[in-house]
Each structure stands twice: as structure tokens, then as C-alpha cells.
Simulated assay, not measured.
Amino acid sequence: MKTAVTLCRVPESAAGPFVFHDPLPEGFAKAAGHGFDAVELFLEGPDAVPADEIHALQQQHGLAIAAVGTGAGMVKHGLSLTDASPEKRKAALDFLLRMIGFGGRLGAPAILGSMQGKWSADVPREKALDLLAGSLRIAGEAAAACGVPFIYEPLNRYETNLFNHLAAAAEFLDRREVANVVLLADLFHMSIEERDIAEALREAAPRLGHVHWADSNRQAMGFGHTDPVPIMAALREISYSGYISAEIFPLPDADTAASQTLESMIALRS
């Protein structure tokens, strides 16, 4: 398992659960200084920062790019793949595909979280699921062309009513025959929704591709009441070899959150 830390440069997400909000040179330097293997990037869009600039920072600090988030499509542009408006759905898919291409140039997968949207009176559940499946199928194919997977994240019930559990999302992807799409297991969302986080990881093992390492209060592991021991044991049991990434609030400050996170990861992963 490889370690990563989040670096956000989206002003609308300044209060969001990301460890570092610094300009990229400072953020990369801090991530490397703490000893992480990679950074997970949340940028305003696919044209926000030239890929060459990020490559240079990677080489300077010896860091990989674990993934690129697409949440700016929602928080900055109000885009959703299940919007009632066909025009907005088209704009959402275009944004997503461009982020996949941007991530591909960095050798990194893109993540679909908040942009998945939700079903509503205007977009009934079955239609929303059809829209989601179609978009995920297209995203998986686009990511495959870039040589990376695409990452889909089930969220908690307060953020989406599409999929809140890993097993249900995995079954959906299998039943709809969606290729090259893996699941993100966010431990914060799972602490709200899953009966047993470790067992949920085992059940979804064939589709598991990314982990957000967060405690029950969305702070660094060890600052809430989640027991990480059985969770890490389950990840070892299923031979998970992807990233465990800190998508957490920078509390009590970013450096303390980063240090506490890395300490908890390293102490348990071996």
C-alpha cells in the first residue's frame, strides 16, 4: 500500500476536507517533507495548471500523483451527471472526460464523487441510474485509453441517494458490465453507512481501487472513534496494493493532521 495526501487548489473548497491548500510548490514540498509517496490533486479544472508544471514538481520532490479529483465540476460549476437538464449533463460529462485526460497525462486516475449527483422527482431513480451507468461506461473507456482506471466513490446518504454502500456499487458496476471502473472506499462515508467497514472492503475487493483514510469525524485517523486495526487487516487480507490517501480536515492544523495520518498508516500497514 502506498500513502498519499490531498492538495486542494479550489477556492470554493477552502473549508473542505483537504490537508493542504497551499500553492502547488509549497504543497508538494510539504507532502514530501512529511514522507508521503504521492499527492492527490483537487484543481479547478483540467486547464488550471499545465501538466508539465506538475511533472516538474513531481521530479523535484519525488512524488507520484495518486489521483485527480473532479469535485470542482460540482462545487465551482454546479455540474452533475444526473442533472435534469440535458445541457448540464453534457457539460458535466465533458468536464469529466477532460479531467480524465488531464489525469492520464500525469499517469493518474480521476475520481467521480460529488458530480455523480442524485435522483429526484425530475430525474427518477431508474433514470438516474441509467445516466450514471452510461457516464461511467464512457469514463471507463476514456480512462482505459489513457492507461489508467476510473474511480467511482459511493458517498454517504447526506451527499447522494445513488449509492451509499460499497457492495451495492460493486454489484451495480458488475450487473451493468462497466469496465475499467474501480471503487473508492472512503472510510468517513463508510463510518456512516456500513455495518462493518472491514467486511465491506472484503466484499468489494475485486472492485476496490482507492482508499480515503479518514476517521469517523473526517479528521486524521486516531482523532475520532474508528478502529483502524481491522480495516488495515482487511486491506492486507485482500492484498490491496493501491493508495491510502488522507482526505481529511486540516485539524488542528495541516501539519499535525498530515503527521498523525502518516503515523497511523505506517504503524498499521506492515
Rank of each mutant, 00 (worst) to 15 (best):
205 A>D: 10
16 G>A: 14
108 A>L: 12
118 K>P: 02
158 Y>M: 01
55 H>N: 10
73 G>Q: 08
228 P>G: 00
168 A>F: 11
260 Q>V: 13
15 A>Y: 04
226 T>E: 04
223 F>D: 15
194 E>G: 09
95 F>D: 11
220 A>D: 01
18 F>K: 05
187 L>C: 12
115 M>D: 11
137 R>Y: 02
56 A>N: 08
184 L>I: 06
74 M>W: 06
16 G>I: 01
66 A>I: 06
39 V>R: 02
8 C>S: 11
40 E>R: 08
39 V>F: 01
269 R>P: 00
28 F>S: 08
252 P>W: 15
39 V>D: 03
266 I>R: 13
154 P>W: 03
173 L>C: 11
210 H>T: 01
45 G>E: 02
247 E>M: 02
235 L>Q: 01
142 A>R: 08
56 A>M: 08
69 G>F: 08
4 A>F: 10
70 T>I: 09
47 D>W: 07
66 A>N: 05
161 N>L: 12
11 P>W: 10
163 F>A: 07
212 H>M: 03
109 P>I: 09
44 E>G: 10
83 D>F: 06
19 V>D: 05
220 A>C: 03
55 H>D: 13
75 V>P: 04
90 K>R: 15
88 K>C: 05
137 R>F: 00
130 D>L: 04
119 W>I: 04
123 V>A: 03
70 T>W: 07
30 K>E: 09
222 G>A: 09
201 L>H: 04
132 L>I: 07
103 G>N: 08
32 A>S: 11
226 T>R: 02
190 M>Q: 09
211 V>S: 02
198 A>H: 12
158 Y>V: 00
208 L>S: 05
241 S>Y: 03
67 A>K: 00
133 A>E: 12
77 H>V: 00
251 L>D: 09
118 K>N: 14
48 A>D: 15
127 K>C: 05
181 V>T: 08
205 A>E: 13
144 A>E: 13
188 F>C: 08
199 E>L: 10
82 T>N: 14
136 L>R: 07
255 D>S: 12
21 H>V: 02
50 P>Q: 12
199 E>M: 10
